[in-house]
Design a protein around this nucleic acid. Structure first.
Length: 743
DNA sequence: GGAAGGGTTGTTTTT
DNA sequence: CAACCCTTCC
């Protein structure tokens, strides 16, 4: 009995076909992750392939991690030397070693969307471009599309021919790239583009990686763009052992350049490719799968296939319509509460899927009111929060002083009395001398009419220099701690003492824990923890990567984020024409866009294992105005006999109210929500049953150090602990996030 | 130099 | 409805 006996025939074929190009068309829930992990195991076990020679590209870091764990279980050795990572991480890893060939420093910074926007703003200002006409966002979008297609500014200009607008964009693109290079920074798209550029420019580097990656596998292949395809084909050119896995019906990233032609035309590019179809679904009940099949059958641009399953029929797809979004959310909260109370399932079995992030708000409100723990995936990224960005920019400045953007952000945070005027003068000087902002600050005495600000600038520069010199011997955590202490960042927030400032401090504590976690992870993998390593990890984590399967919470996310996941119970909410499919698609889109929306719907439906509920509201507030939407056309595409309509339209919510303890008045809700602080994300404030320390004990706090517990007051939600610290005096804090350790 | 307030704008979707 | 940008006022 071998580990491969549990596979069905096509799965086994996909596993055993190790040589040459292979296209695996894997329908939703057809066990493609199993195939991939078994295939890797097979390569190592049966074919004697060195794990060092295997590259597996996944869509998220989380998927990468899971795949490694599963291979570990199958093979039990060597999985740590397989490269399993996302396109972006793989490229960063390569660039960190070789990007000096392209004239960048290997400690380059990675710019996120916010950084890109600030940089673009600078560029437009310098070029005298009216951002009322050419919006930063739209310029960046056009540039991003160009990069997806591997078009340089020159290509774009050529393509523009007589098109004035596109010519203008091309010139902005050129300046933008120059600015990035000056800051020694890359944006997300550059990570791929520059790697391809590197391969094309340096034959030796490409050859090295071709030799290294003799076996290449790519998951979620339907969502690769042209640049990613180029990256992969260059690598696979020599040995041609390229195995791609995808499902054209689940291609949902056209807007960010995904080229569905990559999968539809694979056999054309690799004529001797073996094509294997996985059509048996192991995930969903028959009713759910049939509903999905019926919906997707309305698309014309697809490789025909029909998924089947041996699973039981299961319950029908539930459909419920409500008066408004509040009742919709209340219903969902009520259903989940009921499930948990009746012991029929856990919170973690449930996912709420919606089309746009903005729809999450109401569900958060209702979940808080109903005391249901949840985790919001996506939306405002943790690393996009002001306090986190501020601190990270300190780290970036210490790491790469050529990053002007980072320096600009922190030079006067906290207030050092270095204002816009002074900064402008230094910037001018830097521009004239062709040096970076930070270099100019270092020689600020040379800058004309700097006056009294000089001493303040000196203070800042001395501080950064000190940390730069010590960066090699300090851990990331120590550096961060030093920044926090010396700048008084947290102290300032403490003085503020509002709900908001406390939430910010909590976020900062979390950032500190993340540095510790990073160090531990590196130690485990026998790698050294570096500042640029940490910054890179921070730049490339997707929110979904932070979901912890051991925690019992409901997941709230967009349909896009749900790709690749599965849940026993799924709620697809906001099923209305105008929301999903989106207003944009209905009014301005073509057939292709509508088909993409439909694929998104297909992805949503096929996430569900046992139970699927579709909901919508008759009226809904969008951007301050009330909309009346029809039931989504996708709902109407599901055959009537597969649907349970419940007790008609507005079942007045008699039971629901009982389920929700707080008075269901919106204003009241809002008060609770806002009182609880800003944007509550996870339910972390869970009151411990008891504390493992008591009055008189000596405890350690991650930030304040050692102290003695003076008082413990039991509050409703949490314990309030008063501690007298050796260094910082008496502090009051909540037990659940002070994380005091008895010593 | 910095905070407060008013007007304007906009959302699909993300690494 | 908010978030964000810009102006105004201290």
């Amino acid at each position: 009995m071998s580990i491969y006996d549990t596979l069905n025939p096509p799965q086994r074929e996909a596993v055993a076909q190790t040589e040459g190009p292979v296209l695996i068309l894997a329908g939703a829930g057809s066990g493609k992750t199993r195939v991939l992990t078994h295939r890797i195991a097979y390569l190592m076990d049966e074919k004697g392939v060195n794990p060092w020679n295997i590259l597996a590209i996944t869509f998220t870091n989380k998927a990468a991690q899971e795949m490694r764990e599963r291979v570990d279980k199958l093979v039990g050795f060597g999985s740590e030397s397989i490269w399993v990572s996302t396109f972006h991480s793989a490229c960063v890893r390569i660039l960190r070693r070789h990007i000096d060939n392209l004239g960048y420093d290997t400690n380059f910074t990675i710019y996120d969307t916010d950084d890109q926007k600030s940089l673009m703003k600078d560029v437009c200002r310098k070029m005298n471009i009216d951002t009322k006409i050419y919006k930063e966002r739209s310029l960046l979008a056009q540039i991003s599309h160009a990069k997806d297609e591997l078009l340089t500014p020159d290509d774009m200009e050529m393509k523009a021919a007589g098109d004035y607008n596109m010519k203008k964009v091309a010139s902005v693109y050129r300046e933008y790239q120059a600015a990035l290079r000056k800051n020694n920074a890359l944006d997300f798209d550059d990570l791929i583009v520059k790697t391809v550029e590197l391969f094309e420019k340096c034959g030796a580097v490409l050859e090295y990686y071709q030799e290294r990656f003799k076996y290449i596998m790519v998951d979620e292949y339907q969502d690769t763009n042209t640049a990613q395809f180029k990256f992969i084909s260059l690598l696979a050119q020599r040995y041609q052992n390229l195995c791609v896995v995808g499902d054209d019906d689940q291609s949902i990233y056209k807007f960010r350049g995904a080229n569905i032609g990559n999968i539809l035309g694979f056999e054309h590019v690799f004529p001797d490719a073996r094509v294997i179809r996985l059509e048996q679904n192991y995930r969903s009940t028959r009713n759910i799968l049939n509903a999905a099949n019926q919906v997707i059958a309305n698309n014309t641009e697809r490789k025909a296939k029909t998924l089947w399953t041996e699973n039981e029929e299961g319950s029908k797809v539930h459909f419920r319509q409500f008066l408004n979004a509040y009742e919709e959310a209340e219903y969902v909260a009520g259903e989940i509460g009921k499930l948990k109370r009746n012991g029929l399932g856990n919170y973690r079995d449930c996912a709420i899927l919606y089309r746009t992030n903005a729809q999450s708000r109401i569900f958060e409100e209702k979940f808080i009111a109903a005391n249901i723990p949840y985790k919001l995936v996506g939306g405002v990224n943790f690393y996009a929060r002001k306090e986190i960005k501020d601190l990270l920019c300190y780290l970036k400045t210490i790491n790469n002083a050529r990053d002007d953007l980072a320096v600009q952000r922190i030079i006067n945070v906290p207030k050092r009395g270095i204002g816009a005027t002074t900064l402008g003068r230094v910037q001018d000087y830097a521009d004239n001398m062709g040096i970076s902002l930070y270099e100019a600050l270092r020689v600020a005495e040379e800058v004309p009419s700097i006056g009294r600000s000089l001493s303040k600038i000196d203070g800042f520069v001395t501080f950064i220099q000190m940390l730069k010199s010590k960066a090699d011997v300090m851990t990331v955590e120590e550096i961060l701690q030093e920044v926090i202490d010396s700048t008084g960042y947290v102290a300032e927030l403490e003085a503020e003492d509002t709900e908001e400032s406390r939430a910010r401090i909590e976020n900062i504590d979390e950032l500190i824990s993340k540095t510790v976690a990073y160090q531990e992870a590196m130690e485990e993998q026998n790698q050294s923890a570096t500042l640029s390593g940490f910054l890179e990890e921070v730049a490339l984590v997707a929110d979904i990567d932070t979901v912890d399967p051991d925690q019992d919470y409901v997941l709230l996310m967009t349909l896009h984020s749900a790709k690749g996941l599965e849940f026993p119970k799924v709620f697809m909410v906001g099923m209305e024409d105008g929301i999903f499919p989106s207003h944009m698609t209905i009014s301005y889109g073509d057939d292709g866009e509508m088909e993409e929306e439909r694929r998104l719907c297909y992805v949503g439906i096929t996430r569900a294992m046992k139970d699927l509920t579709l909901t919508c509201a008759q009226q809904r507030m969008i951007r301050g105005e009330t909309q009346y939407n029809r039931v989504s056309r996708f709902v109407r595409e599901i055959p009537r006999e597969l649907v349970d309509l419940g007790h008609t339209i507005q079942e007045k919510k008699p039971k629901v109210e009982e389920l929700i303890p707080t008075p269901a008045k919106y204003s009241k809700m809002k008060e609770i929500l806002q009182g609880r602080n800003y944007k509550p994300r996870e339910f972390k404030v869970t009151k411990a049953n008891s504390l493992d320390y008591e009055v008189g004990d000596t405890v350690r706090h991650i930030k304040f150090g050692v102290g003695i517990v003076k008082e413990i007051v039991e509050g409703g939600r949490d314990y309030e602990v008063t501690v007298e610290f050796d260094k910082v005096g008496v502090k009051k804090m909540f037990a659940s996030f002070a994380k005091l350790k008895k010593i």
